[in-house]
Write a protein that binds this DNA or RNA. Sequence first.
RNA 1: GCGGCGGUGGCGGAACGGUAGACGCGGGGCCCUCAAAAGGCCCUGUCCGAAAGGGCGUGUGGGUUCGACUCCCACCCGCCGCACCA
Length: 834
Amino acid sequence: MSEHRYDPREIEPRWQALWARERTWEVVNLEEGASPGAARANEPPSSYVLEMLPYPSGEPHIGHLKCYSLGDAIAHFHRRLGKRVLHPMGYDAFGLPAENHAIRTGVHPRVSTAESIAEFQRQFREWGISIDWSRELATSEPSYYRWTQWIFLELFKAGLAYRREAAVKWCPNDQTVLANEQVDAEGRCERCGCLVEVRQLEQWFLRITDYAERLLADLDVIDWPEHVKTMQRNWIGRSEGAEVTFRCEDFDPAHPVDYPVFTTRPDTLFGATFFVMAPEHPDVLRLAEGTDHEQAAREYVNKALNETNEERGDTEKPKTGVPLGRTVTNPVNGERIPMFVADYVLMEYGTGAIMAVPAHDERDYEFAVTFGLPIRQVIEPLDGDAELPYMGDGVLINSNPQFDGMNNREALAAIVAWLDREGKGHASVNYRLRDWLVSRQRYWGCPIPVVYCDTCGIVAVPAEQLPVELPEIEDYAPRGRSPLASAEDFLNTSCPSCEGPARRETDTMDTFVDSSWYFLRYCDARNDEVPWDAGALAEWMPVDQYIGGVEHAILHLMYARFFTKALADLGHLEFQEPFQALFTQGMVTKDGAKMSKSRGNVVSPAALVQRVGADATRCYTLFIGPPDQDADWSDKGVEGVHRFLGRLWRLAAETAERTGGPAPGLDSPPPAEGDELALLRKTNWAIDKVSTDLRRFAFNTAIAAVMELVNEISRLRDAVSLEALRFAIGTAGSLLFPFAPHTCADVYEQLTGERVWEQPWPEAEEELLEREVYELVCQVNGKVRDRVQASAEATPEQLKDLCRGAPNVIAHLDGKELVKEIVVPGKLVNLVVR
RNA sequence: GCGGCGGUGGCGGAACGGUAGACGCGGGGCCCUCAAAAGGCCCUGUCCGAAAGGGCGUGUGGGUUCGACUCCCACCCGCCGCACCA
């Protein structure tokens, strides 16, 4: 019937051109220097909507499209609620993949990264994402990393960045050090999958452990998904307990050596029957020296250190270890207990040494059984019988008259107090979190801005000399040291302090450093005097809504929180948390599997945009299911959404034709009845539903609600006034705009000649959300037996009468005794019979 | 092992303790057409029944309730995170 054809390939570029020409989505900061409170008094509230910045590699995939569609819907919604919205974009442009690609192909990482960025930009525009391009940045630009370096030096000066030799995770393939977080459970490199080795190297660390307690505590004040908070809590791994000192007097009683241990169970101290050190413990070989076990200990330590994490971390393998031929004294009872070295004790947790209580710890029990060591039970369950090892609560036995008979929880506190008084220990808290290793022996990263001088030591490059620019080099292949070390011009410099000859640091920073502060830079992206203006931050930060994948639940999100707190402590920020609210989107899979080139199941956004348009593709990624859950891609599904958008668009085109072209305004028609009223009701129902759903991120049901409205419009199109039709279609376009901006801008313009994004978000009329008659559900014993028309004003008594009079209810009441009647006004009546 | 999330038609998924299966996909029938594409209309959990209607149905088994996908207890299965963390 219609010659109107829905053609996204014509519609979408037309609107994109307008938004680009008019710079529709740019926001300008309020006047700088003005006091933030005063400047904002007459301004609408601000909203900072941010999706995690992409790593530009190749071209964007469907997961990017989902993420930015999600953020865009929120940004549009906030704008139309009257807020000033900051919605910027940038690129996490340093990193190993670009460098590895360069080593393979010879194309400089800067070139391949720039190409990829250009493709991302092109597609983001083609998707119609409402980005403020005036603030665009790439972390690999000197104008950006200058400030990354500045932040590093601020941390360095505050003692939060430091150098130390450490046993570090080394990837033999990538030829670089990795952070603990970048090594997976099997001891494999997160990026290339090869087995990681341990090496002793001097490295740069950031003191994130100083912030463990605050990173943990402040999780309570942010609006993040509970599972992400839980992951962070687990990662921080706080344990309460005590540090207890065991003394070794085997060498010279006059000069004893103290070995503190951390334990969460000081109540079991009387059950300690031996003592174990980690193979990495610096004293292990010295202790064994001169004993019968010297040779065995040396061999054991060598073997343990050469084992991969995978081999060593296997909890299934039997416990191994070697005696050291020495003893330590248990401070609570003066017993001398034997020392061992065993690989089940980890150097990086606690003090690298433990007291072993086999009766009440599974691992110690296993070790004791293997080596025939004594097992002394010191806690008895209330029913008296325990299978060892027993980890539960109970009453202290075999300990000391002072504590025997006490409940173990009380005893724990009493023993810690006693240790404290005696100077043999104290209450203590331990964290699993390690300091963040940030140096990388690679080329394509932000240079660490320090200089080594033989007279002055480690010297910070003065702020006015920043950035320390990444030099051009020929050969960036890794050889176990940074490729920068062979760039003589870069390496050799003069000391900023004494002006004598000096060498530059040649390591670069972990790319997670770059992305730990980019959200700050967007607030004032073009400032080349300072990293940000305080007023600009006051205006936008913290981010109101952050959006990204759960894969960043620990690393990126923890590091960004750490940076924020550290910078706040240094007086540079006035808030403690960068991301007030977080939404983690689920993955888009294909045939149940993660999309990957090797599987050949990659869905290309560019091809989809060609076929069905950006709007259909965007809508479908959000319609497919709850956006925080993983969802499987269906080509048929996206076509369904395309058909739906076409139906809406054609309805608008036909209606505009019937009204003789656009007419300004979209007022609700006057009260009506019959179909006219039904359509009006449905329209208001949709306004209410979509508004509610947008606030709770239920985008799938929001889109479904507009589909329902459009179905209703199609059904009633010939039965209602043009005015009602126009209102319903225009409202459908208005409500769907955050998801399908091009199509809806077009729908709205055809009907009104106006720009939908400049219109306030529609508001439902209360009286149209209520019905004066409804279908009363009539139940007998909880089963639906009939439905009858009921008036909204009917009293409970009248509703009961209606129900009892319903034909099919009568049939089920026959001969039974009515014992109870439940009335839920507006819903149902339930008759209970016997 | 610990922690978290989930299990609903052929499929993706809806459902403040109150009509289970909205919306979409797929399937079936029909209209438009010379035909096709596009578009439109109707049906579609399952079993019995010509129909009216009825039985059964949200992983399993219990419980609370007039009423349970929803709340409680126990269990099974799947996914994710952490894991020799003292």
